[in-house]
Design a protein around this nucleic acid. Structure first.
Length: 571
RNA sequence: GCGGCUGUAGCUCAGCGGAUUAGAGCAUCGGUCUACGGAACCGAGGGUCGGGGGUUCGAAUCCCUCCAGCCGCACCA
């Protein structure tokens, strides 16, 4: 089934082509009518004709019988009003369409790099956005029909592991494992750090340990593996708590690329791209300069022979294209890394490792700020742990549930509190344009009023409540709609706009567009709900309204689910 | 210095492939209640879209410039 948007666009395109081949209509929803088509004005300018005359020609050529009526407005806008028949047909199709009008895409292999916590460190707000945005994009891509490969590029390599392993040895394996198992990674890390800074002998041992780690000493690797495995177990718990679709299987950390680094360097050299500069081996991609206006290098091998993160990032690009056969790659990484990633991509393209046919994008995002508009920290100035953040939100959501009389038992309330808390946090994160910083204000996002996740969940719960009260199973063949009440029509138009909103959000890699759509839909629904009795109405009218409710409930649930947000049946 | 980002109602944010009176949420004020879950609905006030210039019949949206703030810019990822 073609979406309403596509039906209109196709008919308009034909009409525009009749005037001038290649002219594009720009179709959008409008307050003045159901849809508005622009594009006549620029076309008229090119043809040197009056916009209204051109509009008339387009209208004459447009085959909109049974679809919509057109009116030329203002200097040359085409205001389209959908026919009741089209609305009825489209709604009837939606009732029986699991995908709610969203086409299944031809399958691409999409590698999405997100979350990326560090081994032996706890996850904190700094990981929130990458994790939440990456998860939402992964879910959206999967629903669209693509093959998604999630890559959790954890920081599991580098000089800190010397001191961490030595600290592990000092504590004794058993006690160390026991303390790390409870997820208290930060105090382990801090203790190692303190010893490293205070004790020269420990520092020397750590240095030696790094060397044996890198040279593949089996015992050192075994100890390192202990740290990695315990950390991955901890990450899994956090992901479970956050309802993030990442697992240990998606963890492919920096260490995975170790064996490829030497080849990256020698292959770049063979291609004649390597330059020795300041002792380091560098590639100078075009278009990047440093603060003195000189070409800026991407350092692939440091002057001490060690490999930088540029080398492993290059290895990852190459691996994802050649081994995973990625046709699209997304890096959900903070904005400050944009220059680095742009250079990595540029070098990969120079080397021929990243063909032009592979879309490769940095999905950058801004910072999470506190009320003071500075980086979000605790009152004492420490980094906010993700677990603590969620716990506080769950607590608030739970307290709010208690304040309302409810026939739910304690277990149900516990689950609900978590679902509401996560909806609040995730929706707040996803609903602002991702490149922008946003102010983290838990009280606002969990106040359950206005443009929040819980508001959307509530709208959905009210809908489900209608069907619970209905008792009997409800089904309908085809809907004969009048949509006489303006609220009904407004809601119906909102439902038909779902595919376009979803696809636009996915195309632009901007989940906030889907958020805006869902909020708008929820508002349309509540206005309808207030004005149009459903269960108290009878006959075809009741079926029509139940159909609107059914589609709305499924649209909200599906929209939320691809954002990684649960839609409870009741709350 | 180079590059990137930001500046839209009191607050938090949409809108920025140009187009008819600039939108939403919160807050404020005023309505709606025998309510299918009021965590709701309806309405009002509130903005020279940072300043200036340009392109255009038309600019929050495109171009230039200035102001304010943030981030990155060679061996930590």
């Amino acid at each position: 089934m073609a979406s309403t948007y596509d039906v209109l666009l196709a008919r308009l395109q034909t009409a525009f082509d009749a005037v001038e081949s290649g002219a594009d209509p720009v179709l959008r929803t409008s307050d003045r009518s159901d849809y508005q088509a622009n594009g006549v004005m620029s076309l008229a300018k090119r043809l040197g004709k009056s916009p209204r005359d051109v509009a008339q020609i387009v209208v004459d050529h447009a085959d909109l019988a049974g679809v919509a009526t057109v009116e030329i407005a203002g200097p040359g806008f085409l205001n389209l009003t959908l026919s009741t028949k089209l609305l009825g047909d489209q709604l009837s199709a939606l009732v029986h369409d699991e995908r709610l009008g969203i086409a299944r895409a031809t399958t691409a292999t999409v590698v999405i790099d997100y979350s990326a916590p560090n081994v032996a460190k706890e996850m904190h707000v700094g990981h929130l956005r990458s994790t939440v945005i990456g998860d939402a994009l992964a879910r959206m891509y999967r629903f669209a029909g693509h093959h998604v490969i999630a890559r959790n590029h954890v920081g599991d390599w580098g000089t800190p592991f010397g001191m961490l392993i030595e600290h592990l040895i000092d504590l004794g394996e058993g006690p160390a494992v026991a303390s790390l198992s409870i997820g208290d990674l930060d105090s382990f890390y801090r203790a190692a750090r303190m010893k490293f800074d205070a004790d020269d002998a420990f520092k020397e041992r750590s240095r030696v340990r790094v060397v044996s780690l890198q040279s593949g000493d089996p015992e050192t690797r075994r100890l390192w593996r202990i740290l990695v495995n315990l950390s991955v177990e901890y990450f899994d718990k956090v992901y479970a708590q956050l309802n993030i679709s990442l697992s240990a299987a998606d963890v492919v950390g920096e260490s995975y690329y170790n064996d490829m680094l030497a080849d990256v360097v020698s292959d770049l050299d063979a291609l004649g791209l390597l330059v020795r500069s300041g002792g380091a081996l560098c590639v100078f991609p075009d278009g990047f300069s440093n603060r003195d206006g000189e070409p800026l290098p991407l350092i692939v091998q440091k002057s001490d022979e060690g490999f930088g993160y540029a080398a492993s990032d290059l290895a990852a690009v190459r691996d994802r294209v050649s081994t995973l056969h990625a046709s699209e790659m997304l890096y959900v990484v903070g904005m400050p890394q944009s220059q680095h990633l742009a250079m990595v991509f540029a070098v990969a393209r120079m080397a021929g490792w990243l063909p032009d046919t592979v879309r490769c994008e940095h999905v950058g995002f801004g910072n999470v700020l506190g009320a003071d508009r500075k980086m979000f920290k605790t009152r004492s100035g420490e980094t906010v742990k993700l677990v603590a953040l969620v716990n506080e939100a769950v607590e608030k959501a739970g307290a709010s549930l208690e304040r309302r009389t409810s026939d739910l038992d304690d277990d149900q309330k516990k689950v609900l509190a978590s679902q509401i808390a996560l909806a609040a946090i995730k929706y707040a994160d996803l609903s602002t344009e991702r490149q922008h910083d946003y102010v983290f204000d838990l009280d606002r996002m969990i106040s359950f009023e206005g443009d929040t996740g819980p508001y959307l969940q509530y709208a959905h719960a009210r809908l489900r409540s209608i069907f619970r009260r209905l008792g009997e199973p409800w089904s309908v063949g085809s809907i004969t709609v009048g949509l006489d009440a303006p609220e009904e029509r407004h809601l119906a138009l909102g439902l038909l706009a779902f595919p376009e909103a979803f696809e636009m959000s996915l195309r632009s890699l901007q989940p906030h567009r889907l958020c805006s759509y869902l909020f708008d839909l929820a508002q349309r629904f509540t206005a309808f709900y207030d004005a149009c009795p459903v269960l108290a109405s009878v006959g075809p009218l009741r079926d029509e309204r139940l159909a609107l409710c059914e589609i709305t409930a499924r649209t909200l649930a599906l929209g939320l689910s691809v954002l990684g947000i649960d839609a409870p049946e009741q709350m």
